[in-house]
């Protein structure tokens, strides 16, 4: 009965729920979905993380490769974030080149990375003018159920935070490269940008962490990305109705709280990994 109602009158279904002061998935208006993070589960990638936000999940894998730097910035490495909204994750997407939404997301993440100064591209330099690291961060959405920006940024940050790079010896005269895969060095991430998404309905009703249906039927939505120092890295508001300053302020406040909790989840996930590493390494 519930399901039929939802498919026949999706808008009314949501409105009825909202009038009752509850959301279709049983949450309060201002409650977030639970977060879970799993790091380094993918063996083939140099580092990886799976970020789950309720149903929404995104996986990020980082592959490090070697390349020659650009001539104008010879000591900067590359970081290439790409978001893939594959047809796997939702019936909204079709196979083929990336949709506009995926392009917007990729660009957004690129900007967030450079704005937040989370990583220093100079760290990726092996030999000036000759050899630098390229970090291909590919973010794959596995389940598209709203607030994908949060999941993508979370997955990428967690993956970057756990990234280790092997030691490379480069002989600048002969050009011979030797890799030492057993000596891996951790890569420093200076800050952890975290994002939170909001959806706004008529009469300036604010919902946090919207699901896919809520996003579709909302009047507008926005996402705020904040770094460690509670500074705003990025605000994303794609069209829709104008919002009042009050709402934005409220959003900022909530983001602060949310960012702290997400950061603690990520750090907890990483610390379990470290414990595991020590445990597995000690008997050898």
């Amino acid at each position: 009965m519930d399901l039929q109602y939802k498919t026949i009158h999706p808008v009314k279904y949501l409105q009825d729920h909202l009038e009752q002061g509850i959301r279709p998935d049983g949450r309060k208006f201002l409650s977030f979905r639970p977060v879970s993070v799993n790091v380094s589960s993918i063996v083939q990638a140099d580092s990886s993380a799976i970020f789950k936000l309720g149903d929404t999940s995104a996986v990020c894998g980082i592959k490090a490769e070697l390349a020659t730097p650009k001539a104008d910035i010879p000591d900067h490495g590359y970081i290439v974030p790409n978001v893939e909204l594959s047809p796997l994750c939702s019936p909204k997407f079709r196979p083929g080149p990336p949709s506009e939404q995926a392009q917007v997301l990729s660009k957004l993440i690129d900007i967030v990375l450079s704005n937040s100064r989370a990583l220093d591209l100079k760290d990726l330099c092996i030999c000036k003018n000759k050899l630098v690291w390229v970090l291909y961060c590919d973010i794959l959405c596995l389940n598209y159920n709203g607030s994908v920006i949060d999941a993508c940024i979370g997955a990428m940050i967690a993956a970057l935070k756990t990234l280790t790079l092997p030691e490379i010896n480069y002989n600048s005269e002969t050009g011979v490269i030797v890799t030492h895969p057993e000596n891996r060095k951790a890569f420093t991430v200076r800050t952890l940008p975290v994002s939170a998404s909001f959806a706004i309905f008529e009469k300036q009703l604010l919902l946090v962490d919207p699901s896919d249906d809520e996003e579709d039927m909302s009047s507008t939505r926005f996402s705020i990305v904040m770094d460690d120092e509670e500074e705003i890295c990025y605000i994303h508001k794609p069209g829709g109705i104008p919002i009042s300053q009050n709402l934005l302020c409220k959003g900022l406040e909530m983001t602060k709280v949310r960012a702290k909790s997400i950061r603690s989840v990520i750090n907890a996930a990483i610390s379990t990994l470290n414990v595991n590493n020590i445990e597995t390494n000690s008997p050898k």
């Binding site: 490769e65 070697l66 390349a67 020659t68 730097p69 650009k70 590359y78 290439v80 974030p81 790409n82 080149p97 990336p98 995926a102 392009q103 990729s106 660009k107 690129d110 390229v134 291909y136």
Partner: peptide
């Protein structure tokens, strides 16, 4: 339509 890295790596 994607962010591109260096030409060859």
């Amino acid at each position: 339509k994607r962010i591109n890295g260096p030409e060859s790596s």
